[in-house]
């Protein structure tokens, strides 16, 4: 029953990206690798980000934290709003103070992002001391609590372990503990479970859910559409540097509005039965310097028509959904059955 007095977690966005464009220096000159990206993260919700390899998912996440490999990569235009702050324009020093405290990122490779020379307790404690000014003892106590929170058994013992003494799944949990130590508003998790088996993956995703239940907003980058379907609230699909479709996960999966999304869904390998031949999307994504002026998916799209040669914008379709397809209104694309 909807109760007007019931204070739902505020629906104000935790983070909004508007018209983000990022360029990269290549042997073909400066080319845009991210172009006109829009997305909104809300408190208490997990937003899944999927898309072709090289479509700009990681670069978008890095831009939010101002961690792009400059000067090769550079934000050209657009806004990244955290409340009233535009992260794309904030002075570097101020941004550094926010990183880890209000916005955090978990990277794909746990072993390469944990400093092997320090114990887990020191690594987590360092974040707390820097941002919250905790003393050594308080930081250690809090580190133990955090390890417990992310589901590491015997946290009082594990706090003194070095990263290499932990399995991949435990390392990933330590990274999440570091990322959420200061209770950030926004967590960006880039393929946090790709290297893990399904049981550990399920634990990590349950952990992310319990953190969002406390009001955090999460952007979860993943290739695994099963993970999106089961663990995300909203979905953003990218292709060749652009957002091509967004909306509530169940709605998008049941009735995709962009042919690329439909193509991805058709390619998901089933555990139910072996098929003669897997469905694929023919061809490959064009490189950034050879993108067409119109729809970037046109050369691979089974529904391509002359209208697709024209530039196309991300269009609001109602129901919290948007899509970038000139033919969306006339297409009836197949999704996964409810």
């Amino acid at each position: 029953m909807p109760d007007p007095a019931n204070t739902e977690p505020s629906n104000a966005p935790a983070l909004t990206i508007e018209g983000l464009r990022i360029s990269a220096a290549t042997e073909h000159g400066r080319v845009d690798v991210v172009d006109d990206v829009h997305l909104t993260l809300r408190p208490g919700r997990i937003t899944g980000l999927a898309g072709e390899s090289g479509s700009g998912k990681t670069v978008t996440g890095l831009a939010v934290l101002r961690l792009l490999a400059e000067p090769t990569l550079r934000v050209e235009s657009g806004r990244i709003l955290l409340g009233d702050l535009d992260l794309a324009r904030l002075p570097r020093g101020e941004l550094r103070a926010l990183r880890g405290r209000r916005v955090s990122m978990v990277f794909q490779e746990p072993m390469t992002s944990l400093d092997p020379a320090f114990t887990v307790g020191t690594l987590i404690g360092e974040v707390l001391r820097r941002h919250l000014g905790m003393d050594r003892r308080a930081a250690r106590e809090r580190a133990v609590e955090l390890l417990d929170r992310v589901g590491i058994p015997e946290p009082e013992k594990r706090v003194d372990s070095f990263p290499f003494q932990l399995s991949g799944g435990m390392q990933q949990r330590v990274l999440i503990a570091m990322a959420v130590a200061c209770g950030p508003d926004v967590l960006i998790a880039d393929e946090p479970t790709t290297a893990l088996d399904v049981t550990v993956q399920a634990q990590i995703l349950r952990l992310l859910r319990s953190l969002t239940d406390d009001g955090m907003a999460v952007l979860l980058v993943t290739h695994d559409l099963g993970v999106l379907a089961e663990h995300c609230d909203d979905l953003v699909v990218m292709y060749a540097g652009q957002v091509v479709e967004t909306g509530p996960v169940d709605d998008v999966l049941a009735a995709p509005a962009h042919p690329y999304t439909a193509g991805l869904l058709a390619a998901v390998p089933s555990t139910a039965r072996r098929v003669e031949r897997l469905a694929t999307i023919p061809g490959t994504v064009p490189p950034p310097h050879l993108l067409p002026a119109g729809c970037r998916f046109v050369a691979r799209c089974p529904h391509a028509a002359p209208v697709c040669e024209e530039p196309v914008t991300l269009e609001d379709a109602g129901g919290g959904r948007s899509r970038r397809c000139a033919r969306a209104a006339e297409l009836d694309l197949e999704g996964v059955g409810r």
Binding site: T199, L205, G226, R274
Partner: peptide
């Protein structure tokens, strides 16, 4: 493969199969 997927014997195998995230609600 068919036997492992359709009638796994070990609890560990069952737990792996049970944890696979599925896209399709009906399959779930």
């Amino acid at each position: 493969a068919d036997e492992i997927y359709e009638s796994p014997r070990e609890a560990y195998t069952k737990s792996l199969l049970a944890a696979v995230p599925e896209v399709s609600p009906s399959r779930r």
